[in-house]
Design a protein around this nucleic acid. Sequence first.
DNA 1: CGGTGTCTTGAACACAGTCAATCGGAGTGG
DNA 2: CCACTCCGATTGACTGTGTTCAAGACACCG
Lengths: 228, 228
Amino acid sequence: MALAAIRSPIPPVSPGPAIRPRPDLPILASAPDLSGSPSVYGRKQEIFGEGEEADRVYRVVSGAVRSYSVLSDGRRQINAFHLRGDIFGLETRPAHHQSAEAIVETRVMVYPRRQFEAIAQGNAHLACELWSMALRQLEHKQAHVLLLGRRSALERVAAFLAEIERRSGEAGWFALPMTRRDIADYLGLTIETVSRVVTQLEAEGALLRAGARRMRLCRATIRQVLCD
Amino acid sequence: MALAAIRSPIPPVSPGPAIRPRPDLPILASAPDLSGSPSVYGRKQEIFGEGEEADRVYRVVSGAVRSYSVLSDGRRQINAFHLRGDIFGLETRPAHHQSAEAIVETRVMVYPRRQFEAIAQGNAHLACELWSMALRQLEHKQAHVLLLGRRSALERVAAFLAEIERRSGEAGWFALPMTRRDIADYLGLTIETVSRVVTQLEAEGALLRAGARRMRLCRATIRQVLCD
DNA sequence: CGGTGTCTTGAACACAGTCAATCGGAGTGG
DNA sequence: CCACTCCGATTGACTGTGTTCAAGACACCG
């Protein structure tokens, strides 16, 4: 299977996105005076844990974050991957109801939640922006539910890879920051199944691989797998 | 299995909740002047379809609504059941990205979306209420994702029944407004599996039944199935 | 009553899970 | 530069949970 790397043109090592968000830009357009402080988390470092006070809001500057819940017997469900530009950590309640960890070394901007909410209270425009942001996340979650409830393993992995490719911002070759375990825990599968399906997709010509974590999708074939 | 109805005290036919929301009450506390118009939908009647213009917002006065997406090959995923008091139909985009149908005869209040948004634009308090409503729905969706991704059929059905019991507002005997197909399409299972699991839960003493749609949970046993 | 839609039950099957061995690549130290 | 280790990924053989297909039971309604 390592042949894929030989058959395909040499994949460029990620040059980083051409445009990366300036860390000093405001988190939301309608709150220019809301400023955060930069922070860095190492691989596998917890950013916040379930039950902890939710007093900070985060925006990813570079790297990747997973937010997840765990059942008492250890089963883990990853709710979302947060990539460059994504905002996470917002809650209704005083405490976090899920945990968040850096997947790789990750730079974030941190904003105080109280300030956030105080400004929103008096700024309808900001509050509307927050509202519509939450609604967009809700739509995304619904797609996630559809994926878990009514899609086969093949379809789940194909949809996942297509989404990550799109969000990575780079057409062509892209890198998966997360492990097979992360993917499995996001898609409600096991690592073995994820691995088998990726191999199958490669065999069907839906993707090319360079190692386990770099790949290039054949969009037409992927779309064919997904149907709609 | 019909013995359950004999073994247990005769279940009262639903007397309806003691307190039902007055249809003329404002949809949200911070928008007292936002008034809607009442409307009634019959069993299986579509309230809105995927792709239609999302220009109305709804609140359930009585009855039950399912909102769902369908794949091109007919697989259906129910995203949510809306019961008395619930608000649904809010969207970020101009068009609905899912469909909604009345499950039984359902009375709703209908509010114009434009008016809704216009008021929110100038009323930070309302906008914040909408924001926090969306965040609460987001939390609920995350629980749904955990259910579909990492829970067994037994756990899914138990959690589902517990939630409906809670939301029905009546402790003790309660009615399921939805069919086995609806439950299956919400939980990512088949009707046969739902049926078998309900039978199993009954055999384990986790619930009593009066016909297929009325039951009474033994909370301790249900909690035991769920662990956390 | 008969008819229809819904629910239940059974038997066979399939997809994804489990258990276990092996592979591969990155990092480390001799 | 190579050997060694560690962790993640892959692959294989087998198992099991939930699906599929099919038959029947039940309940509601004319």
